[in-house]
């Protein structure tokens, strides 16, 4: 019996290291999971409105918006930071904007094939729809989860040929769609940080009250193609939403 003890120990140790692909999402986010569908299927949520009809309408618009964002998302980021020579940071502020083409949104909506419509207390209407103009292919990444139920992409970014990944997070706002949009936008900003087409960086060093002051202004912009939210996670511990986004390399 004693000779099995080391073997058992080894097995239990190895079991502790494994990641699992068992579904860990719960609540409203579980309704948004479209990982089982091909890549030309999108999900949109409305947030709460007074009528169900209005919620479905808004959710369909959100689906079409995701399709347009995937086609092209232009990002512009400006940041200013000032610090003193003694190492103290005086300010650190950024101003970020995203631009996408919302013309022909109606055309896109006309082409959509609605798969499911559901209602959720937090999400409002949840619409899953197929966009037949796009080729139906396998999704580029399937999330895996660690022992605590957290997706592994929160600590290590996925590596998929031809794609770039970034993670964004947001505090919990009163409306779910606002929280998700904020997390998605942060992920988009982080994608811009990974690859910027143009960077403008100006640094000014001056003396103020006998103390050297350094002010750095930086602006960057880039165009993301293939921008998609791959997965989402709600961390109950920190009460924050997390988004994994990808774009073409």
């Amino acid at each position: 019996m004693a000779r099995f003890v080391p073997l058992l120990l080894l097995v239990s140790l190895l079991a502790g290291c494994t990641t699992t692909s068992v579904e860990q999402r719960a609540g409203a986010l579980a309704n948004l999971d479209i990982s089982g569908y091909p890549s030309n299927v999108y999900v949109g949520i409305s947030g709460p409105y007074s009528t169900e009809e209005r919620m479905v309408e808004e959710a369909i618009v959100a689906v079409a918006k995701s399709i347009h964002l995937k086609a092209a998302l232009a990002l512009d980021s400006r940041l200013v930071t000032a610090s003193h020579a003694d190492g103290n940071l005086k300010s650190f502020a950024s101003d970020d904007h995203g631009y996408w083409d919302d013309t022909h949104l109606g055309e896109t909506i006309k082409r959509l094939k609605i798969i499911t419509v559901a209602f959720d207390r937090e999400a409002g209407a949840v619409v899953v729809a197929e966009y037949p103009d796009e080729e139906a292919s396998r999704r580029i990444y399937t999330s895996q989860y660690d022992r605590d139920g957290k997706p592994t992409w929160m600590s290590v970014l996925p590596q998929v040929e031809g794609h770039r990944f970034a993670v964004g997070s947001s505090i919990r706002y009163s409306l779910l769609n606002r929280s998700l949009e904020a997390a998605d936008f942060t992920a988009a900003q982080n994608l811009l940080d990974l690859k910027s087409e143009h960077v403008f960086s100006i640094e000014k060093v001056s003396t103020y009250n006998d103390l050297m002051e350094r002010v750095l202004y930086q602006a960057q912009r880039g165009l993301l193609r293939g921008f998609t939210i791959v997965d989402r996670y709600y961390d109950a511990e920190s009460k924050s939403y997390w988004s994994l986004a990808s774009c073409y390399e």
């Binding site: 940041l79 930071t81 910027s196 960077v199 960086s201 100006i202 640094e203 750095l216 930086q218 960057q220």
Partner: peptide
């Protein structure tokens, strides 16, 4: 930002 400024 710091790395990009160093490149600049």
């Amino acid at each position: 930002v710091e790395a990009k400024n160093k490149i600049a």
